[in-house]
C-alpha cells in the first residue's frame, strides 16, 4: 500500500486553476521530492494533502484513508512541517511540543519521553525550556521537525523545510530525514525548489503550473530526458509557461 496517493487532484481559487489533474504516489520508506518553481502549486498541494481544505476534484489517500471521508485516520498517520512556521512564539519549546502531543492524544509521560528523544536527536534539547521567540531560524525548524515526529507518523510531509537555513543546516536536515526513512521506514514528501536537495535514491515529482511534468526515480530522470544534469532536466520540464 502506498503511503500517499493523489488521484486526478484539481483545485481552483475562484477562476484560477492552481492544480490540474495531479496524480502521483509516495511509497512507504521512500523520500519523494516534490520539485517546482515558486507558484507551481506545491503549497496548495500540501494544504489539500493535510486536509486544510478539500480538493475540488480527485482524491487524496494516506495509507488507504481518504482525506475527504476519513480525515482523522489520515491525519494521525502524518507528521507535517509547513512552509510557514507554525510554532507559537510566546510559548517555550516544551510547551509547543506538549500542545502538539495533546492534539494527537499522547499521554503526558509518553509525550515527555518522546519530546526529549526527538529534540535530542535534532540537537535542540538544550532549548527545551526557552521561549521559541529566542530560537534561531534553524533551531525553530528542527523543533518543528521534532514536533512532527512526536506522534510517530508513518509519513512526513515537509513543505520547503530548508527555507531560511544556511547550507550546512540544509544538508543536516536532508541527512536527518533520509536517515529517518531508512531507520523507521517512514515515507517523506519533501517540497522544494532547491535542486541540490535531490539525491539519486529519491523519487522525484516535478510540478509546473499545477501539473505533474514528470514522476519517477531521480536516478532515471537525466537518461529519460536526454540531458546531462538534474538542473537541465528541471529547466526542460519547467520551460513552458
Amino acid at each position: 500500500m502506498n503511503a500517499l496517493s493523489l488521484d486526478s487532484v484539481s483545485h481552483s481559487f475562484k477562476q484560477r486553476r492552481v492544480l490540474d489533474a495531479v496524480s502521483f504516489s509516495v511509497a512507504q520508506g521512500r523520500v519523494c521530492i516534490l520539485l517546482g518553481r515558486n507558484g507551481a502549486g506545491k503549497t496548495t498541494l500540501f494544504s489539500l494533502v493535510t486536509g486544510l481544505y478539500h480538493a475540488r476534484f480527485g482524491s487524496v489517500q494516506v495509507f488507504g484513508h481518504a482525506m475527504r471521508t476519513d480525515p482523522a485516520a489520515a491525519l494521525a498517520a502524518m507528521g507535517v512541517v509547513f512552509q510557514q512556521q507554525t510554532l507559537d512564539l510566546d510559548l517555550t519549546t516544551a510547551e509547543n511540543l506538549r500542545y502538539h502531543a495533546a492534539l494527537h492524544g499522547l499521554a503526558a509521560e509518553v509525550a515527555e519521553a518522546r519530546m526529549r528523544e526527538e529534540l535530542g536527536r535534532l540537537a535542540v534539547l538544550d532549548r527545551l525550556h526557552d521561549p521559541v521567540r529566542s530560537l534561531s531560524g534553524g533551531q525553530r525548524r528542527r523543533v518543528e521537525i521534532a514536533r512532527a515526529l512526536m506522534h510517530r507518523p508513518r509519513i512526513l510531509l515537509l513543505d520547503e523545510p530548508t527555507t531560511g537555513l544556511d547550507v550546512p543546516g540544509r544538508q543536516a536536515l536532508a541527512h536527518h530525514v533520509h536517515g529517518l526513512c531508512r531507520e523507521r521506514g517512514i515515507a517523506a514528501l519533501w517540497a522544494t525548489h532547491f535542486l541540490e536537495e535531490v539525491t539519486p535514491e529519491d523519487d522525484v515529482v516535478v510540478l509546473h503550473a499545477g501539473r505533474v511534468q514528470w514522476a519517477g526515480g531521480a536516478d532515471r530522470i537525466e537518461a529519460e530526458l536526454g540531458v546531462a544534469s538534474m538542473t537541465d532536466a528541471f529547466a526542460k520540464l519547467t520551460a513552458a509557461a
Binding site: T50, G51, A72, A76, T86, H100, L103
Partner: peptide, 18 residues
C-alpha cells in the same frame, strides 16, 4: 496569519470538536 492555526486544524480530530 502566523501559521499556528494549521497545527490545530491538522490534528486528527473532527474540526467541529477542535
Amino acid at each position: 496569519e502566523m501559521g499556528s492555526m494549521r497545527l490545530l486544524l491538522t490534528a486528527p480530530l473532527p474540526r467541529w470538536y477542535l
